[in-house]
Design a protein around this nucleic acid. Structure first.
Length: 341
DNA sequence: TAATTATGACGAC
DNA sequence: TCGTCCTAATTAC
């Protein structure tokens, strides 16, 4: 799935361009027709993410809860803000993390995912400003095309299986492939949040750390499973799990209760650190601390971006040992058997 | 054109 | 531990 960082960025898009606006809600696919009818024409009043859960509040006490699951995605189009840092080729545009490189021009109708067209010549004056753009926010964010101010194809036809379309006068968001999409009361939404562990972006730092440490150090469960347990800590997925464990040089099978307190605290702080970077950049950058050349290489290619994730059989970047992959609770777990002995 | 893959989570045994 | 649900991009043939 899009792990916690992308859900927070999605919540930000809604806060930026939908909150305070009346929203036409529909279900082009039809599978959410009843829910869409409940929400249609209401004003969106708030947008929040906790862990991997997104909560969009609407007038009159209705909450749309969305969980993207393993391959859900939101596609935004219209006058929205696109960060250059979301471009798939990994160019980081400015130190402020805002756009200097927007995709320009039309690339054809099919599969524009990941196609980045070029630099926008006079974009400096419009850094971060809403403009006619298409943006996919999912596991890997991509700017699809800049419609250009002259185009009038708004709103665009829904493409594919769109469960929900949220439409304002100038912006549209299409949801596809979610594992959860339902209308809740605020009480019910609170109950969902109550079942989640701390999220560094929404939980007080000290409180979050204490909760995480006390739970982990009581459980006989392997730390590799605890990190994926959303009731222990919210927002970590399979990529961040593998990378956090490697960064801590920690054997994934170590029972939580055997871990030294300081190590567990360090794990929480590292998660806070990686999540912050992820929310800022839109990318799961887990190899900070490298020299600049190596870091550029990591940015340029998804395959070179991580310490161990998706690197089965390749040499460990630290010791050269072959990275192994094994199934843990039906998910692929990558780790270095030497560094993480 | 078909098979494979994916950064989840749940419920039934 | 398994099967199931959700969808689309990528890879294999």
């Amino acid at each position: 799935m899009p792990e916690g960082h992308s859900v927070h960025r999605i919540a930000r898009q809604f806060a930026l361009h939908f909150v305070g606006h009346q929203v036409a809600v529909s279900s082009p696919q039809g599978r959410f027709a009843a829910g869409a009818a409940q929400l249609d024409s209401r004003v969106m009043t708030a947008s929040n993410a906790v862990g991997k859960q997104l909560f969009l509040d609407f007038d009159d006490e209705l909450v749309l809860r969305v969980h993207l699951g393993i391959y859900g995605a939101w596609d935004f189009a219209g006058d929205i803000t696109a960060d250059a840092t979301t471009l798939r080729d990994g160019r980081v545009a400015t130190s402020s993390g805002q756009a200097t490189a927007l995709a320009v021009g039309r690339m054809g109708q099919t599969n524009m995912r990941g196609t980045v067209v070029g630099e926008h010549e006079d974009s400096l004056h419009s850094i971060g400003a809403p403009r006619r753009t298409r943006l996919r926010m999912a596991e890997q964010e991509t700017v699809r095309a800049d419609e250009g101010p002259g185009d009038s194809d708004f709103p665009p036809e829904p493409i594919g299986q769109v469960r929900v379309r949220l439409l304002t006068d100038v912006a549209v968001a299409d949801l596809r492939g979610p594992t959860a999409c339902e209308v809740l009361t605020p009480i019910e939404a609170d109950a969902v949040v109550a079942r989640l562990g701390p999220d560094p972006m929404t939980t007080d730092a000290a409180e979050g750390e204490e909760r995480f440490v006390s739970v982990v150090r009581k459980k006989p469960t392997p730390i590799g499973l605890l990190l994926m347990d959303q009731s222990v800590v919210a927002g970590i997925g399979n990529v961040y799990r593998a990378e956090l464990l490697f960064r801590a040089r920690l054997n994934p099978y170590t029972p939580g209760k055997l871990l030294p307190e300081e190590l567990v605290r360090a794990l929480w702080r590292d998660w806070t650190h990686l999540l912050t970077i992820g929310v800022e950049t839109g990318q799961m950058l887990t190899m900070d601390g490298l020299d600049p050349d190596a870091y550029r290489a990591a940015l340029a290619s998804r395959a070179d971006r991580h310490w161990v994730y998706h690197r089965a059989g390749e040499p460990c970047r630290v010791c050269g040992t072959h990275i192994v992959v094994e199934l843990a609770a039906a998910r692929k777990l990558y780790w270095c058997p030497n560094c993480q002995a």
